[in-house]
Design a binder for these strands. Structure first.
Lengths: 132, 132
DNA sequence: CTGCCACCTGCCCGGTTGGGCAGGGCGCCC
DNA sequence: GGGCGCCCTGCCCAACCGGGCAGGTGGCAG
């Protein structure tokens, strides 16, 4: 039996954060595992091992309905909606007019089948389009 | 004026994986954010930004700040807000006047420190007062 | 070259929101 | 009995929201 290595006194060593993966898509899981494996201070949990945190990705992808796929601009607007921004604030932050901001908000309401911006944000959070 | 660098043909550049954090414990969240911020190929999502994956950890309870403790009626109103209900719809469903519904909404905005109902719902979801 | 998509802008209108102010009743605690 | 918190109602006003309609430009694929 080999003896455990002697740890010299020194600064307190913080245990690495143990992260488990719960990602259905193999390609994404492989990429994430490869990236995290080399991060000092982190280590990936073995199968079944309790973890400090779990990295999850939606197993069921958001509906692949073309009508509900959001454009990059719409996603930007949605992120700002989720921060409670008004159309005016959205326009200011994106450097567009309030009419354009309203146009994108309207598109979001249509694609998310929402009755208003609050409903859109809540719905988007439920289906995993955004994370609050 | 320096010429733009020539990019030699090589492997296709892959967009970074966007990771959101849903970790209530501030110390753990800070450590993870610090470790992940320097990983090539990964980047942390801004608040509300759609992410490829979410890192979650068992959370501490929401802050027990008396000023933010919601009354039973306020919780009812908040639940309806999270469904996108208008003040009129809230009034109808709770059997109260629209003025009273507006009064409760106003109290919620005050207690949650929100700028509007959308902000209130998003914030309440973030701190765990409601689940979407 | 053409058509389509994404993004952009303006105008108008009715409805909604949010805040402030006024007031009230009821139940509970000191 | 008095004070307080919760819940309720009304009115007014400015600002905002959402929808409809009109139009434009630039980039890209066929």
């Amino acid at each position: 039996m080999t003896e455990p290595p002697v740890v010299a006194p020194g600064p307190v060593v913080i245990a690495p954060i143990v992260i488990a993966l719960d990602i259905a898509a193999p390609a994404l899981a492989d990429r994430v595992a490869a990236l995290l494996a080399s991060v000092p201070g982190l280590r990936l949990a073995a199968a079944g091992e309790p973890a400090d945190a779990v990295l999850v990705a939606p197993g069921a992808t958001p509906p692949a309905d073309p009508d509900t796929a959001l454009t990059p601009r719409e996603r930007e607007v949605l992120a700002l909606l989720a921060e409670g921004a008004s159309n005016k604030a959205i326009a200011r932050q994106l450097g567009i007019s309030t009419h354009t901001a309203k146009f994108h908000v309207g598109s979001l309401l249509d694609k998310l089948d929402a009755t208003g911006r609050t409903d859109a944000v809540a719905h988007a959070a439920r289906i995993g389009v955004i994370h609050l």
